[in-house]
Every structure is written in structure tokens, then in C-alpha cells.
Amino acid sequence: MLGWIVRGIRSGIVTTRYPRRPDAMPGYRGRPVLHPGRCRMADLRAAAEVCPTGAITANEGHARLDLSLCIQCGRCADAVANGSITMAPDFEVAVRDRRALVVDVVSERNGDGPAELPSSDHASPTIEPVRKMLGERMATLKRSLHIRHVDAGSDGSEEYEIHALTNPYYDIHRLGIFFTATPRHADVLMVTGPVTRPMELALRATYDAMPDPRIVIAVGTSACSGGIFGSSYATLGGVDKVLPVDIYVPGSPPSPFALLHALLLATDRVAQRLLHQVVRVPS
């Protein structure tokens, strides 16, 4: 036992300083980013051809990049030659509402006024009231959170990343966050996977067994939207088909830093970075 203690001390401190200072993650393929200066609608159409989940869709006048469907494969960046779409090592991708993960791209018509976006509001839905409601709910829990995790059909990599939160690099205990086995003691429900048919009732039972206030975090692209599985005979197409989701964290899987961002966002200790955008590009 002494030997282990000595080894532990000699290993030094490897814990990240996040949220005070994020670590660099060289090479990490975080999320696709559009560069409006270099991007044309044709690029987006090329990207849409190769996207396996339909995260990028494009037609004549309008394209959409929906991060809640992105599995970080990077094919879109490979499909465009001019660097109009790149994969940025960005991990602060957690959001309170799913619409914030969407970038709508509108084709500029020469000289015309701004084109209409098909079937969606111009302004993002009210972020502030959502934030306030969540903040109020979480007011008493800022410094201590207990998490109950439910695997509703993930591919197993999200569990690796969630479990990694307890390793010395991330150490969520220093933030006052702990895992609990019983939903009766839990404040946060982290759900991974698109919610398979057999797990629906078990997931609901877990949610019901949690006392208020409670929040639900959909972890991973499959949980946010169904991902590559979508809605089928075996999967329901995302956690928000079953439970009210408070925080979405896309990624396949989201890195532990993204998970930390999500947990701290839930307790209003960090800010949300992504917002719904509308971008204009030449066709």
C-alpha cells in the first residue's frame, strides 16, 4: 500500500486547470466550422453528399449544419478543397437548447435583400428565460452535484469518457461533482445513446426516481438526435423523445472536457459558447 502512495505522489499533479484555463488538445477533431469568407454553397453541397448522418444538408438556396447530428468523422472537411470547412479543436459545445447547435446558411442573391429562411424563426428562441429557469432550479446545487448515468444504447465510448472524469487528469471531485448509484440521491441524469426500445421504460423509471430539482444531460450525438441510428424499429431518435432535456452535448463521443463544460454549464458556472447562427455565403 505504501508503494502505491509513493508512486501516486511521485506522479505529480496532472489535473487540468479547467474551467480557469482550458488544456490544449492538439490535433483533436472537435467540430466542423464554416469559414464564411471562403465558403460557397457548392462546398456545402459537396459536404452534404458525404455526411453519413445528414448533419450537413444543402439545397439550392439554403444549407444547414446541425451539430446535434455530427459524429466528428471529418469527411466534410476532406470533401472541400479550399479550407472552407475545417475541424476545429473546440470542445465547449454544450448548449441548453438544441437550436443553438444549428448554423443556417443562406445563399446570397446578388443585390437582393436578405432571403427568407425556410420554416424557422429569425431570432433564436429566448435563451435568457431558459437560462434563468435552469439557474433558479440549480441555485442550491451550485457547489455539489450528484450524477446518475444511464446508458440508453450508446456504443460504449461515451461511457469511457464519462468514467474518465474521475481520473486524475479531469478529477471532477475537485469541482464538487460526484457519481451516485441511486437515482434517489442524484441531481443530474446523464443519458448516453439514442434510447433503444428496451431502455425506454428503464430510463423513465430512473428519471421518475430522481427528486426535484433534477436536470437531464443528453451526452453524445446519438443522445442529442439519434445520430447515425436515427429513429428506427430499435431506437427512438434521441433522449428528448422520452425525457425533457436540459443540456445537449454533441460529440461522438464528447471529450471529457466537453462533459466538464456541460456539467458546469448546468450549474451556471461557465457560459454557453454556441448560439444559433445565420450565415450568408455566395452560391
Partner: peptide, 14 residues
């Protein structure tokens, strides 16, 4: 303080 009665927790096995 509202009370909500739910079934006994049996690891989601229902």
C-alpha cells in the same frame, strides 16, 4: 416541498 410517490428502485428492471 412536494411529495411524489414512485415505485421501489430495482435498478431499472421494473
Amino acid at each position: 416541498y412536494r411529495e411524489r410517490a414512485v415505485p421501489v428502485w430495482t435498478s431499472g428492471s421494473l
